[in-house]
Amino acid sequence: MRWRRRPPSPLPADPDCHQVAEVLQSYLDGELEPGDTGAVAAHLEHCERCGIEAETVTRVIEAIRRQRPPLDPDGIERLAGFVDGLTGAEGD
Protein backbone atom coordinates (compact mmCIF):
# COMPACT_ATOMS: atom_id res chain seq x y z
CA MET A 1 0.00 0.00 0.00
CA ARG A 2 1.74 3.14 -1.17
CA TRP A 3 -0.54 5.78 0.21
CA ARG A 4 1.39 7.51 2.86
CA ARG A 5 2.68 10.81 1.54
CA ARG A 6 0.57 13.92 1.24
CA PRO A 7 0.38 14.35 -2.53
CA PRO A 8 1.36 17.35 -4.56
CA SER A 9 -1.91 19.12 -5.09
CA PRO A 10 -3.74 19.49 -7.33
CA LEU A 11 -3.32 16.23 -9.17
CA PRO A 12 -3.35 16.35 -12.95
CA ALA A 13 -6.79 15.85 -14.42
CA ASP A 14 -5.75 12.39 -15.62
CA PRO A 15 -3.36 11.01 -12.96
CA ASP A 16 -1.38 7.82 -13.65
CA CYS A 17 -1.40 4.71 -11.46
CA HIS A 18 1.63 5.84 -9.47
CA GLN A 19 0.05 9.20 -8.67
CA VAL A 20 -3.20 7.54 -7.66
CA ALA A 21 -1.38 5.05 -5.42
CA GLU A 22 0.32 7.96 -3.65
CA VAL A 23 -2.99 9.53 -2.67
CA LEU A 24 -5.19 6.47 -2.30
CA GLN A 25 -5.24 6.55 1.51
CA SER A 26 -6.19 10.24 1.58
CA TYR A 27 -8.82 9.62 -1.09
CA LEU A 28 -10.43 6.78 0.85
CA ASP A 29 -10.37 8.82 4.06
CA GLY A 30 -12.08 11.74 2.35
CA GLU A 31 -9.07 13.96 2.90
CA LEU A 32 -8.44 15.04 -0.71
CA GLU A 33 -9.52 18.32 -2.24
CA PRO A 34 -12.71 17.99 -4.32
CA GLY A 35 -10.85 18.38 -7.63
CA ASP A 36 -8.33 15.69 -6.73
CA THR A 37 -11.12 13.43 -5.47
CA GLY A 38 -12.81 13.63 -8.85
CA ALA A 39 -9.57 12.85 -10.68
CA VAL A 40 -8.89 9.77 -8.54
CA ALA A 41 -12.48 8.56 -8.82
CA ALA A 42 -12.30 8.86 -12.61
CA HIS A 43 -9.05 6.88 -12.67
CA LEU A 44 -10.50 4.13 -10.49
CA GLU A 45 -13.45 3.86 -12.85
CA HIS A 46 -11.34 2.76 -15.78
CA CYS A 47 -8.23 1.22 -14.17
CA GLU A 48 -8.98 -2.32 -13.00
CA ARG A 49 -5.70 -2.77 -11.13
CA CYS A 50 -6.09 0.42 -9.09
CA GLY A 51 -9.77 -0.33 -8.58
CA ILE A 52 -8.95 -3.71 -7.04
CA GLU A 53 -6.31 -2.12 -4.82
CA ALA A 54 -8.83 0.51 -3.66
CA GLU A 55 -11.36 -2.20 -2.85
CA THR A 56 -8.80 -4.16 -0.86
CA VAL A 57 -7.65 -1.13 1.13
CA THR A 58 -11.28 -0.24 1.76
CA ARG A 59 -11.88 -3.72 3.17
CA VAL A 60 -8.89 -3.33 5.50
CA ILE A 61 -10.13 0.03 6.74
CA GLU A 62 -13.66 -1.30 7.20
CA ALA A 63 -12.35 -4.30 9.13
CA ILE A 64 -10.50 -1.94 11.45
CA ARG A 65 -13.51 0.32 11.84
CA ARG A 66 -15.70 -2.62 12.83
CA GLN A 67 -13.53 -2.75 15.94
CA ARG A 68 -14.93 0.61 17.02
CA PRO A 69 -16.23 0.13 20.55
CA PRO A 70 -19.87 1.07 21.04
CA LEU A 71 -20.77 4.17 22.97
CA ASP A 72 -23.10 4.03 25.92
CA PRO A 73 -26.29 5.70 24.64
CA ASP A 74 -27.31 6.61 28.18
CA GLY A 75 -24.01 8.44 28.61
CA ILE A 76 -24.57 10.46 25.43
CA GLU A 77 -28.10 11.20 26.62
CA ARG A 78 -26.75 12.48 29.93
CA LEU A 79 -24.22 14.69 28.12
CA ALA A 80 -26.97 16.08 25.89
CA GLY A 81 -28.97 16.82 29.03
CA PHE A 82 -25.94 18.55 30.48
CA VAL A 83 -25.77 20.79 27.38
CA ASP A 84 -29.47 21.54 27.71
CA GLY A 85 -28.89 22.49 31.33
CA LEU A 86 -26.02 24.77 30.38
CA THR A 87 -27.98 26.54 27.67
CA GLY A 88 -31.33 26.59 29.44
CA ALA A 89 -32.94 24.43 26.78
CA GLU A 90 -34.64 21.95 29.11
CA GLY A 91 -38.10 20.98 27.99
CA ASP A 92 -37.55 21.84 24.31
Partner: peptide, 13 residues
Protein backbone atom coordinates in the same frame (compact mmCIF):
# COMPACT_ATOMS: atom_id res chain seq x y z
CA UNK B 1 -0.22 11.05 11.23
CA UNK B 2 -0.47 10.01 7.58
CA UNK B 3 2.79 8.10 7.73
CA UNK B 4 1.86 6.26 10.94
CA UNK B 5 -1.60 5.53 9.61
CA UNK B 6 -0.10 4.08 6.45
CA UNK B 7 2.28 1.84 8.34
CA UNK B 8 -0.32 0.76 10.88
CA UNK B 9 -2.90 -0.15 8.24
CA UNK B 10 -0.20 -1.89 6.24
CA UNK B 11 0.57 -4.12 9.23
CA UNK B 12 -3.10 -4.92 9.71
CA UNK B 13 -3.41 -5.69 6.00
Amino acid sequence: VMSRLHRARHKVR
